[in-house]
Simulated assay, not measured.
Amino acid sequence: MLYVPAMISKQEPALKDGAVKGFAPIQARAESYIRAVQENLMQQVDAFEPEIRDMARYCMEKGGKRIRPVLVHFAGYREGASPDPEMVRMGTVIELVHMATLVHDDILDDAAIRHGRPSVKEVYGPSVAVLLGDAVFAHALVLAAEFSSTDICRQVAASSRKVVAGEIHQTFEKNDIHLGLDKYYRAIELKTAELFRLSCFLGATAGGYPHAYAEAAGRFGLHLGNAYQIYDDMVDFFGTEQIYGKTLHTDLMKGKYTLPLLLLHEAMDPGGRARLLDSLRRVDESVLREIKEGMLSYGVRDKVMAHFERELDRAEQALKPYADYESVPRLMDLVLFVREQILFLT
């Protein structure tokens, strides 16, 4: 279904829902674009079959920060330009892919909360949720096929495959405390950073920028996505469900060992490692407390921060040759936003 521009009420509350500290100024600079994407998402509901229309609406009516559409908008930003229908459709397509992955993630992680309310899995059950996620994926490709260039649909499909491959890769590495950093980074590049990369690349391309800049914007997105996932992995240990609006500790409970835990294990002596492995067989609130205390004792937070900052530095370096492009300051604002988020963790 093509995007049909329409007037959007100034009273629309969707921008505030699920916003994390510090993102409001970013949203304000992309307000008309985010509203257009949200409106387009809601227009897509009618494209779904009547039997699943209410379920599709539940997926789309309340999202998170819409950071991937914001990346599309900022990467292709031109001063004074109003939201372009093709840019809005790009943001919608990528957000649909992201939504589908979240529906599936919540099944795999048995997560009850998503964006501050019951997850799709919790409302409709896991069997329905996995099929609904498939339907949302499929509809993203329907929209992508409406672009004049078949290359866009090809890239969206390839990125969708990579995201799924990343989740499969992580599933097969469950309960492996010896996972190693190479495999960890491979997993997060596929399951998280790939959509950040695609958002920036397609946004810069749609904005009419040179191909070399679009490639650089893609590299920027990849490293920003890595940093964002590292931050998200920290949230799982040091965040609260009330603030972040999702079920926490799901990775740990399901045996998906992320950077903070890998670095904790690496820092311990053989005795400490043996005790940690024993604790991971029976994760409960007391074990969670012990792990958090261990992370503080071994300086894990600072070590994770070093990885986090390295990825943000690489993102900044990717755009350094293009500092005079109109879109770059806005993308750099996203680096600042992501950098600030980790400061809110206790």
Rank of each mutant, 00 (worst) to 15 (best):
153 C>L: 10
178 H>V: 00
161 R>H: 05
180 G>A: 09
207 G>W: 05
325 Y>T: 00
265 H>A: 14
327 S>E: 08
206 A>E: 11
344 F>K: 02
158 A>W: 02
224 L>T: 01
299 G>E: 02
97 V>T: 14
55 M>I: 08
51 E>S: 12
100 A>Q: 08
247 T>E: 07
220 F>R: 07
302 D>S: 15
205 T>E: 15
159 S>K: 13
112 A>N: 01
264 L>Y: 12
334 L>A: 05
307 H>K: 07
178 H>I: 00
50 P>E: 12
249 H>D: 10
22 G>T: 08
144 A>P: 03
246 K>P: 06
17 D>A: 15
215 E>L: 15
71 L>V: 09
107 I>A: 07
282 R>D: 15
309 E>R: 14
137 F>I: 06
27 Q>P: 00
131 L>K: 12
286 S>D: 11
228 Y>V: 01
124 Y>W: 10
40 N>L: 01
275 R>P: 00
145 A>T: 11
167 E>Q: 15
183 K>Q: 12
317 Q>G: 00
6 A>I: 10
177 I>G: 04
146 E>W: 03
91 G>S: 11
314 R>D: 06
66 R>E: 01
98 H>S: 09
264 L>D: 10
279 S>Q: 10
148 S>L: 13
283 V>E: 04
223 H>S: 04
62 K>M: 08
239 G>C: 08
286 S>R: 14
302 D>G: 13
308 F>I: 03
35 R>F: 06
41 L>K: 07
25 P>N: 06
272 G>L: 03
304 V>L: 11
161 R>D: 02
298 Y>D: 09
215 E>M: 11
330 R>N: 14
45 V>I: 15
322 Y>G: 01
71 L>S: 05
118 P>T: 12
188 I>P: 02
273 R>F: 03
322 Y>D: 02
242 Q>E: 15
340 E>F: 06
27 Q>F: 05
313 D>C: 07
260 P>C: 11
170 Q>N: 12
93 V>L: 07
115 H>Y: 12
159 S>P: 00
11 Q>V: 08
175 N>L: 03
268 M>E: 14
309 E>V: 13
329 P>W: 10
201 F>K: 14
144 A>E: 08
12 E>Y: 03
260 P>S: 12
41 L>T: 04
230 I>S: 08
31 E>G: 05
256 K>L: 13
270 P>Y: 08
267 A>M: 06
94 I>T: 10
181 L>K: 10
269 D>S: 10
119 S>I: 08
176 D>T: 06
35 R>Q: 12
135 A>Y: 13
272 G>A: 03
164 V>E: 04
220 F>E: 02
305 M>Y: 07
215 E>T: 12
147 F>K: 04
26 I>L: 13
148 S>I: 02
204 A>D: 07
52 I>S: 03
115 H>K: 13
240 T>V: 09
149 S>K: 01
334 L>F: 10
284 D>C: 03
163 V>I: 15
267 A>R: 15
278 D>S: 10
138 A>E: 12
202 L>K: 08
145 A>I: 03
274 A>S: 14
345 L>S: 04
334 L>M: 15
137 F>K: 01
157 A>P: 05
133 G>S: 06
79 E>P: 00
169 H>Y: 15
296 L>W: 13
169 H>N: 05
2 L>H: 10
316 E>A: 13
